[in-house]
Simulated assay, not measured.
Amino acid sequence: MIKPLALKEGDRVAVIAPAGPPDREHLIQGKRVLEEMGLDVVIGRHVFDIEEDLAAVDRKRLTDLYEAFCDPTIRGIFCANGGFGTAKIADMIDYEKIQSNPKIFWGYSDITYLLNAIQKSSEMVTFHGPMVASDLNDEQRTMETECSFSSLFTREFMTYDSHKSSLNTLAHGTGEGKLVGGNLTLLTNGLGTPYQVDSNGAILLIEEVAEPAFLVDLKLTHLKQAGVFDEVQGVVLGNFQVDSDEELKLRKVLKNFFASSPFPVVENFPFGHCQPNYGVPLDVNVKLTTSPPKLVIDSGVM
């Protein structure tokens, strides 16, 4: 697995929007945050483009992706926000071109599809983390979210435990493997495709946003019946962002689904559609323990 180079002050990074145009003011605010980290930020040419022709939209999104990866002055690529449609461009990507230009690729939500596609097809570490417009704007941003970008500037491992969030164990044990996963809907959508998440010997990260409990149960069952949980070494549940009416139902679904798991399962990690939203590298080595609940993650950069 290829790790990109760590960032340093003065490095040039790009912001692109493969899942749809962001709010302009929120992007400006998020760009300012990256600049305060010492980065030189450029915005993709088509980030704000809105087209009725969906094929044209896909081509423009792909153009921004290629320009960011192939520009030798760009050291990292951050997605502006989530949305929809990244699955459509996965088949259009020249993954050898991506592999020849390894660099940080960072996002989540609908970007999950590209994280897994690039990870599998280019053999490159990708990053599940907060996005520039949706997470770094003045309304949403927290200091903890902002600080999670520091992992891109160092080669140190990361530790997530109850000091960061009140964690709850659904199944006890210890597991070690590579960290994979992301948004539950996108993981389910990838089943049966070349970009299906490779959970064999892995710690699987799952997060979701505003899905009713019955759909979460349905999608988890779909993953189970597709064999995704057969060889996992552990499961890390992030934030699910449900309203109060669904919270109790969701807790029951997750408890019932994972109660008899032969691998460790811990919930309430602050990853996903939440604040704080911590960034983590995918396809690096991790260790999950439950006494106490803790996830130790290798660095994603070299």
Rank of each mutant, 00 (worst) to 15 (best):
F157H: 00
E156G: 00
V209I: 07
E246R: 02
G190R: 04
M158G: 01
D243S: 11
T185W: 05
D230E: 08
N168M: 07
K224V: 09
N200K: 10
V209A: 14
L220S: 08
L186N: 09
E207T: 12
H172L: 14
F240W: 01
T169N: 06
P194I: 11
L170A: 07
D161G: 09
E247G: 00
S261H: 11
L215C: 04
T185H: 07
N168S: 13
L248I: 00
N239S: 14
L220F: 14
V253H: 03
T169V: 15
E211M: 13
L191V: 13
Q233G: 08
V197E: 03
K252T: 06
A213R: 02
E176Q: 13
T159C: 11
F157W: 00
S162P: 07
D161E: 07
L205P: 06
N168E: 12
D198V: 06
H163F: 01
P194Q: 13
L186D: 08
L187R: 02
L167H: 08
F157E: 00
H222P: 02
L250D: 01
D217I: 11
F258P: 01
E211S: 15
F257V: 03
V180I: 12
G181K: 04
K164A: 07
V216H: 07
S261M: 07
H172I: 13
L237M: 06
A171G: 03
L254C: 01
T159I: 05
D243L: 06
T221C: 15
A213V: 10
I206S: 09
L204K: 06
H163G: 02
D230R: 13
T174H: 14
A171T: 09
V232H: 10
V253Y: 03
P194A: 09
Q196P: 10
D217P: 04
I206V: 15
A259W: 05
E207L: 12
V209N: 08
Y160P: 01
L237A: 05
V228N: 09
E208L: 08
F258S: 01
A171L: 11
P262S: 15
T169G: 11
S165W: 05
L170V: 04
G192F: 12
G177A: 09
T221W: 07
L218T: 14
F240A: 01
N239I: 09
K219H: 13
G227P: 14
V235Y: 10
L218F: 03
V253C: 07
V197S: 03
P212Q: 14
E208S: 11
D245R: 07
V180H: 05
F258C: 04
G238H: 07
D245W: 00
A213S: 15
P212I: 14
V197Y: 04
S260E: 15
L205I: 11
E246L: 01
I206A: 12
